[in-house]
């Protein structure tokens, strides 16, 4: 009897040990790809990145040298367009949801933002195509920026709403008690107080859309030359990397790795810096 209990206990303990070991090993397995991916990108990319890469235009097949300068600038411009379209809707929509979104309409809008956030980016690319490319009869930076703008709206809306709601009512009341009109209190006291956190959310959204490829392939398309016209096709880092990666040329593969290294550095730096901030938000 005693013996039986003892062996039962050992069995139970063994089960616990296996369980704990399994979840720990699974966690380690889950992060191995991170090292593999970053490692390969770094090793393959570092040898191909040089000064030319940042300053020159792409060269045709077989010609050595050349870079991605126009694509780097292109990504910047397209992301900027996305911000111009997405941020006002996201931030002001968030303000409305936080201040008066308690009723049915608020629920409906929040639900719409949720649905929008789950839609694959390529589908949003089709939307931008039918809305802008199809009407203008040509690929354009504007269409690409619009697609990325739509993609960032749900994230920005939700962070804005949540962070504005975290601002204590007492601050709003203190502003009102000074005889300041409500709208100014909303903008210059409440939104100003929440701004640090909202900005963090915006930067994380920017990091995410900078790495988007699918919605750009048939909206902003690509361009081998310098172009600053918003109604013309424009190069972007991601589409350029894609074109290089699926080409049959070893030199272009090297450039794809180089582009990936630069892209990963940008995206991960923004993410790391601002994730750190986002965990520290507290208005006490």
């Amino acid at each position: 009897m005693e013996n039986n209990k003892q062996s039962n206990f050992i069995k139970r303990k063994l089960k616990e040990k296996i369980f704990l070991a399994a979840i720990f090993i699974f966690s380690l397995l889950a992060i191995i790809p991170l090292f593999l991916i970053l490692g390969y990108v770094f090793i393959n990319g570092i040898t191909a990145v040089n000064w030319q890469f940042f300053t020159q235009l792409p060269t045709p097949v077989g010609e050595p040298g050349g870079g991605m300068a126009n694509a780097i600038v292109g990504t910047l411009i397209i992301v900027l367009i996305a911000c111009v379209i997405g941020l006002p809707i996201g931030i002001l929509g968030g303000v409305w949801l936080a201040e008066r979104g308690r009723g049915k309409t608020g629920f409906f809008i929040r639900y719409a933002a949720d649905v929008l956030s789950g839609i694959p980016s390529i589908v949003i690319g089709i939307f931008a195509y039918t809305l802008i490319v199809f009407t203008m009869k040509r690929f354009s930076a504007l269409a690409g920026g619009f697609a990325l703008g739509v993609i960032m709206i749900p994230t920005v809306t939700r962070t804005s709403e949540e962070l504005i709601k975290m601002v204590p009512t007492s601050l709003r009341e203190a502003g009102l008690a000074l005889g300041v009109p409500e709208w100014k209190v909303s903008l210059r006291v409440v939104l100003r107080t929440a701004w640090g956190g909202i900005f963090t959310g915006i930067m994380l959204a920017v990091a995410r859309i900078s790495g988007e490829t699918a919605p750009l392939i048939f909206t902003s398309f690509n361009n081998q030359f310098w172009s600053f016209r918003l109604d013309q096709p424009m190069a972007s880092m991601t589409v350029q990397i894609y074109n290089y990666a699926i080409s049959p040329y070893a030199d272009w593969h090297r450039k794809a790795w180089a582009g990936s290294l630069v892209l990963v550095m940008i995206v991960l730096c923004i993410t790391l810096i601002f994730k750190r901030f986002s965990k520290r938000i507290n208005y006490g």
Partner: peptide, 26 residues
Amino acid sequence: RRRIGMVFQKPTPFPTMSIYDNVAAG
């Protein structure tokens, strides 16, 4: 409210503003 000011239970300085800006806020 410009003619009748108010101070609340808990101190409520605006967290993003300096001492000077808090006083000048209104």
